[in-house]
Nucleic acid binder design. Sequence first.
DNA 1: TGGGGCACTTACAAAAAGGTGCATACTTGT
DNA 2: ACAAGTATGCACCTTTTTGTAAGTGCCCCA
Lengths: 143, 143
Amino acid sequence: MTTSSSTPSQPQQNPPAEGTCTPTLPGFTCGLDATLRIIAGKWKPLILYFLAQGGPYRYGELRRAIRDVSDKMLIQQLKELESDGLVKRTDYKEIPPRVDYSLTPLGHSLAEALVPLCSWGTEHMDEVSRVFAKREGWGAKGR
Amino acid sequence: MTTSSSTPSQPQQNPPAEGTCTPTLPGFTCGLDATLRIIAGKWKPLILYFLAQGGPYRYGELRRAIRDVSDKMLIQQLKELESDGLVKRTDYKEIPPRVDYSLTPLGHSLAEALVPLCSWGTEHMDEVSRVFAKREGWGAKGR
DNA sequence: TGGGGCACTTACAAAAAGGTGCATACTTGT
DNA sequence: ACAAGTATGCACCTTTTTGTAAGTGCCCCA
């Protein structure tokens, strides 16, 4: 929870290059920091991703689509996303419970901002795969 | 570390929209997943960010620039970034140690892919701030 | 009546991530 | 001689995050 908010000192040596970020913000180092903290959570990107693809999803659909996620986790992340205003939960209050989830406009905009990351990952799949092969390969000691 | 690789079932109801991601990959659900796992780590985005801004930085410079990061953490993350091929470490093998870090081409491309996230965070700063105010505000029980 | 699905909730445990502080080997400044 | 700076390494501990298993209330179906 410590975010390096105090004394936002920037390096005064190298030229600050282009205005990629604006490091003069409330509790965050920069917008990137803020964004990453919002999508932090093992399943959140996936959720956003799925919701961005299809229309609203029912809870069970998501659950099955994401596969490997437990109820606890899915619900927890959905709740955070909801309270963060990225996802809208619609409870139809029917007798066998029926609920669905969709992106809010804010959520949509975030999902769009994620696209380049997505492409990067896809483009550099081979490098990335090697990296993780390495990390897991001789595991048991390294990390 | 489980990535929902097995049985990549996709929802067959809603139309798959545009080709935002390509969910047919080795160990990851999609490129986004891969990317996020590479930049996972409290300080990595910041490091990439700083390196993307100025030229190569010496260790101590980074340490002071990022502020609040401990040696252990900074070194650890730098090492991972290095072994992931995003950062290049140059050891001048001088008597008082001198080392500097810079982005590799791969690192640069990633940094560029991060720009939209950065902008998103900056643009939606107000919403994001509110979110975190809420999260921390009535803490102690919520999470 | 037993089984299954729906959308969750809760208590508890395991694992991962992060943090603190001390140590190293060598040099320069005072 | 001693403190300070350089770039790290290592041991230990706390916090955060994730996972597991079980349970809830209600309904439908055979």
